[in-house]
Structure formats: structure tokens, C-alpha cells
Design a protein around this nucleic acid. Sequence first.
DNA 1: CATGAATGAGGCTTCATTCAT
DNA 2: CATGAATGAAGCCTCATTCAT
Lengths: 219, 219, 219, 219
Amino acid sequence: MSEPEIHPHDPRWRRLPEERPRQILLAAIEVFGEYGIAGAKLEEIATHAGVSKGTIYLYFQSKEELFREVVRQLLVPAIAELEREVTGGNAADQIERYLRVHWARFERPGTAGWVRLVLTELPKYPDLAAFYFDEAIAKSNHVLGDILRRGVASGEFRTIEPVVAISMIKAILLTHVLWSEAPMPETLSAVRPRADRIDDIVDFVLHALRPCAPSHAAL
Amino acid sequence: MSEPEIHPHDPRWRRLPEERPRQILLAAIEVFGEYGIAGAKLEEIATHAGVSKGTIYLYFQSKEELFREVVRQLLVPAIAELEREVTGGNAADQIERYLRVHWARFERPGTAGWVRLVLTELPKYPDLAAFYFDEAIAKSNHVLGDILRRGVASGEFRTIEPVVAISMIKAILLTHVLWSEAPMPETLSAVRPRADRIDDIVDFVLHALRPCAPSHAAL
Amino acid sequence: MSEPEIHPHDPRWRRLPEERPRQILLAAIEVFGEYGIAGAKLEEIATHAGVSKGTIYLYFQSKEELFREVVRQLLVPAIAELEREVTGGNAADQIERYLRVHWARFERPGTAGWVRLVLTELPKYPDLAAFYFDEAIAKSNHVLGDILRRGVASGEFRTIEPVVAISMIKAILLTHVLWSEAPMPETLSAVRPRADRIDDIVDFVLHALRPCAPSHAAL
Amino acid sequence: MSEPEIHPHDPRWRRLPEERPRQILLAAIEVFGEYGIAGAKLEEIATHAGVSKGTIYLYFQSKEELFREVVRQLLVPAIAELEREVTGGNAADQIERYLRVHWARFERPGTAGWVRLVLTELPKYPDLAAFYFDEAIAKSNHVLGDILRRGVASGEFRTIEPVVAISMIKAILLTHVLWSEAPMPETLSAVRPRADRIDDIVDFVLHALRPCAPSHAAL
DNA sequence: CATGAATGAGGCTTCATTCAT
DNA sequence: CATGAATGAAGCCTCATTCAT
């Protein structure tokens, strides 16, 4: 209909073989996060990546394999990387730092989709889930477990099974990430929209861990 | 054609027509919970309900409308019903009771699907989410908020914004329900499989709420 | 563009579950025969059968499975059926009858495609080929072998390995069927278009089998 | 950039550019022969030829044009060349020589693909078929026709229309070449695998041609 | 010249929805 | 009412063809 102005340097596409896979993966994690595996359309991933449908197949064998690579190349490294950032200070400081580092990480737009991805899609792929657990979860569990054990030993924390505390901490963190994005977070949770929700989380977790006098909660 | 009560060649038995919609809704919540909205197939819902695909359309206009009715007729009432069961005792007892009642409720097979539905599918339908919030969440928030306010007032709990405590409690509860289900709970969380996980939850929550100073034990 | 006259009894389709599979198979054998498995389009098979694309999948799991059923339900029975028609007379008469019966069979329009199907597609499916061999080829070999052995024993035919004569007879028959249809038969063979090509075939085969005086061909 | 003869780091060796089209044609006839026109992938032809996909388009306008050139530049000359080799001896000797020369020719690996190409793909391209007929078939028909006419005239052969004998001879020859190849020859034909199948063919053809009456041996 | 990255039309397949029975 | 056969839009994937490098 409209004559696009044709310049001699108006190529329809460019050769970017080095960047393509990453472009596609980044587009994929976004779209998968929003719609899930079944609901994500390759067409949309391609558009987001600025390529055509067929191009995806130059780098990934299938939609499922693309999802697998998203987990392998983006999810797992991103999670694994977080663990390195938690250092220094006493146990409570480290817990706080752990929470804030993760929160900051997940505040980046589009990352809440990751949580949904992990919660709802990963269980369908046992091998992926196992890989994810080994490479990402186990490490963070180790980091958190160390902090908790140290805190308990030093009396900074009350006596608590590290594995239990870990699951509570992660439950709180992940769910609030999920609630923090998307349409109407406050609708599904009870949370009033607050930018500093992470303060509440830190506060709640540290209170739950602090040592106690004659506890009535031991019942 | 139909002389249902007497004829010896009568096929097994037949449900009253009025029950059809409910059969379908029950099948739908199960299948939606397992596969999500996009992944659920009407064929499978029909099979679960013991009817044919076409029959669904006699009672529901479309797949989406069916999902809406699932939320309206099953999810909301089921959640709303729970709130009535929490009564009596001091604030800590009531919190514990709240947690245990909900946990027991969600331990029924198939109910973890509800949680996934609410956490991951509902946000896509703002109007449904609002309805769900008004009819189900708001009530439970009210119940919990009352308990918390009373506990804080009586000194049983530390000073904490009820709305914050509510979101923490629900985050922990819902996530553990999700993890307690079928495919590899312990793989994606850090949780060792334990039947008494609810004890850990109660313990953690009450510790988080108890007063700060060397407790001069309320009550 | 054109308003089709809508009568109250102008249904867009009719329920014909009994006939559908056969309609589709008949359309499929035609289209497969013309284009091969890869070249055949389900769209065209559907059109030939007077149904929509989706309908094919109500009765056949996939394009390949459709092809398999064509072989199983149409090709093999059609070939097998032929063998029953060869009876009576001396050996030469029976050979002639065998040739003419098969020729008549393959003269039906569309059947030359069968030959191409068997020659070019069947080898790709070893299990199908084995089935076809057992159910169709082996029987016809048996029939032909019997005739030949009897002819040799009675002195009606010269001494010849039945298995050799069989392959010669089939080679001649199949190739001429292939040449007998399609665009320009006489172009690829040397054959002038003649309705009574089968007479030439009968003549040639019987001459090749007839007993001989001091043979110079025995070298 | 290119100093091909001297440099020690010169990659292996390189074909002269003039050979490229031939490389591609040779690869193409192989792949076309195995998979047919529709089933053949340019990617595979390129790989076989040791070039890239794009290179094919430097020499051939399209896949179909490539097939046309295969017929024009390889099939036709190869067939035409065969005719020159049949000389000397009496008619029967020449027929035998014709059969053995062709058989030897087609025994070269990959050449059975030619037969399939001619029998099953060529008919789809009437102009190609006509060209093939004029350039290859007509010549061989002429050669064979001459032999046959001479044989009939000398009494060495029985009275038979040359054109008929030609089609029988070619039918037998081509089909057995097809069956002699790779996937389950003995399954689709009745032929036991035998290295000396050509002896059977020669024997059968000569018997079919020999004079009828108690032979007073010509020559 | 040669490459191979990129494209996009076209085919197979699924499944929500419709409708004759 | 209920059925399930039939439809067809839409999505995944392939591969002949184009074109920047």
C-alpha cells in the first residue's frame, strides 16, 4: 500500500549470529513468563526478539527445547549468581541482605514471570526440575542454611531447623514477587501497594527467627 | 423413551439434570487446576464429568465462561466457607486454628490446583480477580485482621500492621500447599517431605508474631 | 460474493460416521498415488473425500497412519482378492488369465498410482512392506508358482525356476501398468498407444515359457 | 586472498569453479534418486556437493530447474552413451550384450535412483519427458529396433513387432534394476537376491524371442 | 564467487465451537 | 436434553529462496 523508502542501506535484516540466540532467549523468557509454555506463541517470541519465526529454528530445535534453554541459560545462572552477593556481617544482616538482593533482582520488570514459570511449568519436566534444583535451589539452600546454622549457633537466632526456615523464607519471598507484578497485585493478596514491601518481609522473617524467652509458641 | 425407575434394562443410574452443571464445574476445577486455562481441554473436562463435549455448551457459553463459573460457584464459596470455622480461644489459638483449618482444607486431593489457579491464572482476568477478592479474600482478610488486631491490642502479639501479617501468613500457607502437591515438591522447594509441615508453619508464624522484648507472656 | 440459497434443509454437513473412513481412504489412495506421501496434501485428500481437514483426524492419527491404513485396508485386500480369480484350464491358460485379470484390475483409473506407491513409498516403511509382502505378494507368488510348476511338470512350459519366471512376469506387468497411465505413456516407454497392450504381454510371456527344441539360448 | 597453488596453509585443495555445477548435479541426481523431487532437500544436495545452499542458486534458478538440468546434463547423456557400446555379433549376441551393458551400467551404486527418477518423476514434466524421449529413449529404441528387425529377418528371432519387444525388454531390465537396490528388493518383488540375476534376464528374453517351431537353429 | 543467516509461505495437527441427529 | 461428528481457525514447524556479508 505504502511505498517504503528504499535506501541502498535499508536492509530487511542484519546478520547477527552471535547475538541471535540471546535475543531469542530474552524474548522467550518474557513471553513464557507471561503465558506459560502452552500459551506462548513462537510468533510473539519472534516479534519480541525482532526476528522471524523461522529464525528461532536456526538456534533451537523446538519450542520445548527453547524453554529448556531458557531455564539452562537464563534462569539457573541468574539464580546461581545471586548467591555470590550475600557476604559479610552477622547472621541477621546476611539474611536481610539475602532477602534484599533477591527482591531487587526480582523487581526488574518481567522477572515475576520466572516465579510463575518455576512454580507451574517446571514440574512438568522432571529432568529440568532436577537440573534447576541442583544448580540453583541447592546452592541457595546451602547459602541460607549456612547463615541460619551460624545464627542459631551464635544465639542470634532461635533454635530452628534450617530446612524449615529456608522453606518459609522462600515461600514469603517468592509469593510476594508473584504478587508484586502483573495486574492488581493487591487484589489477590491482602497487600496494600507499597514500594517498600521488602521492609515488611525482612521485618517479619527476622522476628520469626529471633531468639525467645519462655516461648508460648512451643506448644 | 425414559422410564428410569422401573425398567430392568435401565442403564446403571442417571443423575438429575439439575446436577449436570455442578458435575461439569467439579470436573473443570480439577482439570483447570492441573493444566491451567489454556492447557485444559474441554474433551477431558467432559470425560471427567461423564458427559459429552457438546453438553458443556448447554450450560456454559464458552471455555472462559466455564472458568468464570468455576471461580464464582466453587472457588469463592469454598474459600468463604472456611472463614466461618475459625472461632474461640485467644489470638494465638485462633491463628493456629486458621492455619490448620486451611491446611486441612487444602490437603484434600485436587485442591492444590485451586491455589495454582488463583496464583497464576486469576491475574489474567481483572474482573474475576476483583470479584474473587471482594467475595473471598476480603472476608478472610477481615477475619484474620480481627484476630491480629485483638492479639496486638492484648499484647499477645507484637505490634505489626495486620495487612502485612496477613500477606505473610497467606504467602506461607499458599506456597506450602502448592509445594505439597504431586510433582516433586521437595525438588522445587527446600522442603523435606513431612506430614507435619503444618506444625512448622504454625510455629514459624507464631514466633514471628510474638512480642519482642523478653516476653512477659501475655495471658 | 454469492448468496447461497439457504433452505431449512441445506445442512453444511451430514453425519456419516459409517462411510467416512472409507471415503477418506479412497480419496487418500488417489492422492497418495499421484503425489507420493510427502507430496500429498491432507487438504486435497479432504477435498476429494468431501470433508474438512479436521475430519481426517477423527479417523486417522496422522498422515502416515492414514497411508498405513490405505495399504492395509485397500492395497493388500485388492491384491489378495485378485488371486482368487485365477482358476481352471491348463497352465498356459491360467497364466494368461492371471495376466488379464491383473491388467483389467489396474486399468481402472487411478490404480496405476498403486504401482508407484508400492515401488517408491513402501520401501520406506519396512513393517508395512513386510506386511504387504506377506499378505499380497506371497499369495500371488504362491499362485503363480503353482501354475508354473504344474506347467513345467506337464511339459507345457520349458524348465525354468518359478521364482525367476515370477519376477519376469511381474516386472513386465507392473511396468506396463505404470506406463499405461499418466501423461505421455509412449514417451517414456517405446510403446505405441494400444488398447490391447495386454495381448502383447500375454504373447511375450507365453513365448518365453514355451518348451523348446535344441535351444541355442541355453548358453 | 587466494594463492591456491603454493601456500602451505592452503586448505586441502579446491575444485576449479567450472566444476561446481557438475558437483552439484552429481549430488542432485543422487539425492533426487533417493527421495524424489518433492522429498529431496536442497540442504542435503548442498552437503553432498560440498557447497553451501546459496551456491546452488548461483548456478541453477530453482529446485525444479536443477532437476531439469540433471535430466538434460546427466541422465540423457548417460543413457545415450550406452547405445554406442552395443556392436558386433549376431542378433541374440547383441541383445545379450545390450542387456549386460545396461545391467553393468546400472549396477554402479546410486544408479538405481535414475530408474526411479525416470519411472516416477519424469511423467510429471511433459516437456522434460519429451526431451528425454527424443534424446535418450529414441536412440536406444533405434538401436534395439535394428537388432530385433535383423534378428527377425534372419530367422534368429520369431516374428514380433520390434516396438513390443523393446517395451518388454526395457520393462524387465528397469524393474529389476529398481529391485536390485537397497531397501528390501526381495520383499517387494519375488526375487531371491542373486548376483547373477542378469543371467536370468538374458535367458528369459532370448527364450521369448526365439523362433516358434521346433527350431532349425538359425546360423 | 561463496556463504549461511534470515525469511515466510505452506503444510500438518490440535481443539474450541457448532450443529445434525 | 444429549450426543459426538464435523468444522476451521490458529499454532508449530519445514524448507525453498533471498540476500547481507
